[in-house]
Design a binder for these strands. Structure first.
Length: 467
DNA sequence: TCGAGACTCT
């Protein structure tokens, strides 16, 4: 058999682009020519292939492997890596809540022969904002003017930080400073401010700003601005005004997107107008926007609230058919709905089927199914789940844990009570309230030998140590 | 994926 031709650096990039599995992509990158072991000169990796593999690894949080590739890239002398690559790495760390590593990457950039502009500063600011490191955001912003000129993006990040923090007044201070420094606010600036106002239910001000942005600043509102306003109107039950706003988008030739419809569909279900949902879904295709996972999730949620699980499962099938992958939220909604109705067998079936469906349960899935078992007094099943979730580092809702303990006390089931307590000791935070403790102690003392009461004291001190 | 949103659980 003929040995295949060795892979060229150019070909490696296209193969990396096609490879969806990050582990396989990494293997491919590390050993592009398994058929030609060491017979050739060192492989001349292109900058593009570095960029592709770093992005792939960063997206799935394979940070150790990503750092290794970065070190390898540092040794390359044939090119200087572009700033955007590091901006991406910084933002991966921000999304993964690893502020230290974001700062580290920023600090190391010069050693990669890469100059830092306002873009890297912005990436770092946003990463720190996501991690809630607001004092650090402030500190870096104060210092950055010695190196670069803050741009609109910089101020937008600061405004966002204020809005998320619930301090809209501070957001206005930043907005004023932005204008004083001669930086023109753009559509993101206004979008962020309007979003903040809507979340705070200050709709009057939000609508005024929408007018001002056009009239005074010459910035046209976009779909993002409209969605915030529509959501704000839905929240106060003004659905007809919300729909009128959607019509205004059509009149003003602002492209409708799935988010607008997800918001409206969610609101329709909430006020019991589910009959209008399918009409809206049809209208979406008229405007050329396809429902996405969030839209479908809103529909699934609506059906579950109506206890129409058949319809909910039908939507799951429809998603698959329309090439729209259900995510963990889609499943959590159904599992939660089933649990609420006492259909814990069906809920557990779906829960256990998650891996086969290509979705791993998250902390919400565990808490939901655990609460379902506790509410319907399926204590054996609950303890089984509790063991698994604590092992994974997830903790239950406090109310569910208390339901379990109280239930076991009522049943006088000291053995299972013991098991549950041992699990809860290993949970990250103390979720058992004082009244429940009192009950547990009195039951154990009454039911069991004194020795267990001593053990219980040990358990209690272990919990206190955790606290 | 240098900056903004819509869907689940508290």
């Amino acid at each position: 058999m003929k040995t295949p031709k060795p892979i060229s650096p150019f070909r490696l990039s296209s193969l990396l682009r096609l490879q969806k599995d990050p582990n396989l992509a990494l293997k491919l990158f590390q050993n592009p020519n398994p058929q030609h072991p060491k017979a050739h000169k060192p492989f001349r990796y292109s900058l593009l292939s570095y960029d592709l593999i770093v992005t792939k690894l960063g997206r799935v949080k394979m940070f150790d492997q990503m750092e290794q590739i970065l070190q390898q890239m540092k040794q390359e002398t044939r090119f200087d890596p572009p700033e955007i690559l590091f901006c991406n790495v910084i933002s991966f760390y921000g999304r993964a809540r690893l502020p230290h590593r974001a700062v580290q990457m920023f600090d190391q950039m010069p050693s990669f022969r890469c100059q830092r502009t306002v873009k890297s500063f912005n990436s770092l600011l946003d990463a720190l904002r996501r991690c809630g490191e607001l004092p650090k955001v402030r500190e870096i912003f104060m210092g950055m003017e010695n190196y670069v000129n803050p741009d609109a993006c910089t101020y937008n990040i600061l405004i966002k930080a204020c809005c998320v923090n619930g301090s809209l007044d501070d957001a206005w201070v930043v907005f004023d400073e932005m204008r004083r420094k001669g930086v023109r606010p753009n559509v993101v600036t206004f979008g962020t401010l309007i979003y903040g106002l809507c979340v705070d239910s200050r709709l009057k001000e939000a609508f005024k700003l929408k007018e001002d942005m056009k009239r005074i600043y010459g910035v046209k509102p976009n779909a993002f601005v409209y969605t915030s306003l529509i959501k704000g109107l839905c929240k106060i039950g003004e659905l007809s005004l919300a729909f009128r706003l959607k019509e205004e988008m059509v009149t003003n030739k602002i492209e409708l997107d799935a988010a607008v419809y997800s918001t409206l569909i969610n609101a329709l279900f909430k006020v019991g107008r589910k009959g209008e949902v399918s009409g809206n879904l049809e209208e979406m295709s008229v405007y050329g926007c396809k429902p996405d996972t969030v839209t479908y999730n809103a529909v699934i949620n609506g059906f579950c609230k109506e206890k129409d699980f058949e319809a909910a499962f039908r939507i799951l099938d429809e998603m698959v058919k329309n090439n729209c992958k259900p995510d963990i939220i889609s499943y959590n909604v159904i599992i939660g709905g089933l649990c609420k109705e006492g259909k814990w067998i069906e809920a557990n079936d779906l829960f256990e089927d998650l891996p086969r469906r290509g979705c791993s349960p998250d902390v919400v899935s565990y808490r939901t199914i655990f609460d379902g078992f506790c509410s319907w007094r399926r204590f054996k099943e609950a303890i089984f789940i509790l063991e698994e979730m604590v092992f994974k580092g997830y903790g239950p809702y406090s109310a569910s844990a208390n339901k379990l303990l109280v239930g076991l006390c009522e049943e006088g089931n000291v053995e299972d009570l013991w098991k549950a307590l041992n699990c809860l000791v290993n949970a990250k935070e103390n979720v058992v309230d004082l009244d429940t403790w009192g009950l547990v102690i009195s039951i154990v003392c009454k039911m069991d030998k004194l020795s267990n009461a001593f053990n219980l004291v040990d358990t209690l001190s272990a919990l206190n140590a955790v606290n």
